[in-house]
Design a protein around this nucleic acid. Sequence first.
DNA 1: TCTAGGATCGGCT
DNA 2: GCCGATCCTAGAT
Length: 177
Amino acid sequence: MARDLLGKILVHTTKQGVVAVRLNEVEAYLGVDDPACHTFAGRRTTRTATMWGEAGRAYVYLIYGMHHCLNVVTVGEGVPEAVLIRGGVAVTGCALARGRRGSRVAGRNLADGPGKLCQALAVNRSHNGLDFADSGGALTIRSDGWTPEACDVDRLPRIGVDYAGAASSWPLRLKLR
DNA sequence: TCTAGGATCGGCT
DNA sequence: GCCGATCCTAGAT
């Protein structure tokens, strides 16, 4: 699923306008057997409720008290796995994205991080649970037909999960070269 | 009710 | 490369 998301277009439509990014970095979180995952060992809380539900929904949470992170729930009812959207390149609405991120931010840095991407797309916890597949919804993921070759994808350790022991070195971060 | 810590970012050295 | 910001979340009490 993480592999399939690379190269797709994430679109957020608001009253201000549309910002879209082509996804170039994602991270897989493998549910109850993954010590780095919020639902490790069956943890089921108010925050993680969305992960336990329907596939294709947005799981949004706040990190470090100041940044939002956007995930795609991947499997389905009772199997709480997700893919964290770590970064993308703005392809539509660059001016609007820059307005949200700050006028001094370079184009390539508008959404090259999970918190930055959420800021550029104005995604916050109010979007938790939204259906990416709802073509009339605010948040959608689309394909423009382009898909990366296997040789275009780096498989790397995940970021910021050192507390998870050996799982922190699992090659579940996928990034376009 | 209390407390420790976090799937980050940007400014500074 | 280091470090502070900032506040929600989850687990302990």
